[in-house]
Write a protein that binds this DNA or RNA. Sequence first.
DNA 1: TCTGGGGTCCTAGGACCC
DNA 2: TCTGGGGTCCTAGGACCC
Length: 420
Amino acid sequence: MFGLVDGNNFYASCERVFQPKLIGKPVVVLSNNDGCAIARSQEAKDLGIRMGHPYFQLRETHPQVWVRSSNYPLYQDMMHRVTAIIRRYFPDQEIYSIDECFCDLRGYDLLQPQSLAIRLRAEILRCTGIPVCIGVARTKTLAKIANRLAKKKAPDGVWFLDSDESEASALSGTDIGDVWGIGRRYAARLTAMGICDALAFARLPADWVQKEMTIVGLRLWKELNGQPCIPMEYTRAAKKGIGTSRSFGTPQTELPVLQEALATYIALAAAKLRGQQSVCARIQGHAHTSGFIKSEDQVYITREIKLPTPTSNTGELIKIGAWILRKIFKPGYRYQKVGVQLGDIRPESQVQQALFDPLAERRGKRAKAMAALDQINQRHGRDTVRLAVTGREQQWTMKQQFRSSRYTTSWSDVIKVRAK
DNA sequence: TCTGGGGTCCTAGGACCC
DNA sequence: TCTGGGGTCCTAGGACCC
């Protein structure tokens, strides 16, 4: 059996842990740049606030809602605490996303798995303040469905699919579009054919599913029929691409500003690259205007460069990024966003140096400088040391008007308690 | 005025190799 | 009339996830 532990309204719940006044109130967490709703408390859902609901509309229609900017360091750290507790109960875990954790229960001789899950849930709530639900079933996809049912109708937050009858009734009660792996496109197609719930899908002929939905669809079909096809991933694989981009707080028109922002994102992406001991052989820069403003002319500019010698050096990558932007920049537009994509990623131990690499002799020294920079920033906080081209004032940074403190990851934000 | 950011996998088709 | 069989690499596009 597989278990899935999933935080309830996770971001909103994290905010509540340190701001108890938000308990019982409608809470909405906004996307980066305070653009739209990406998490809602139950009370906010009950008000009809949708995922992706634009904030500027919400402000008018629902002034009573408590709004927070997203605070990822806080959410990440809270999940870290949650998974540490889960590990004590079920050691074989896959941290699937910032608020979900799969557990492999195979090989454990659990006498009373149901009561164990209920205890786990209570302990997570007691130790972290985060409410979670737990679904358990024969495959990961079925565990996802079990988890949905736990959220919807289990008073104790735990749902087991452990018989043919319970599986069939769970599948027939799940809309096809709510199945993990069925997105908008497939949902529309299947619904048009009269395949409206997971049970109808699971009863389709396997060869039709493979033909129309590729091997991915077939795997999903097997999973729904109780045959595990999606393996547990106990360790995080190295990324094959690393992208960093942000919207500007206000639209920007000048090349130097765009370059400063791009340099900042490249520095972030390069640090991630070094963090997984990789280098990249491809860098792509892009910038675009807002697609939502119909009255203005829109542009999307992008270019990619292949590097003769793969690198993870921030300075080298920034230099290329600046060159790319200079080449593709079109004046006269109000740019909303710039970003970088690092591709063709490989282990730093497998670098093939170009024959006429002008930096050949300096590479070792530069790598040491980067290692020192990473070490300092790890120890003393992000951006303690950074490159001057990333800017001093950074007037373009995203809006975060309602951000809570980094209660658990920043010394200056730790809550102070005084005893008399 | 105002709408996020980060990923993965699969398939088909073209260019090229022997 | 009629033209093999086996590969690789790359890119674009389509689907999906949180």
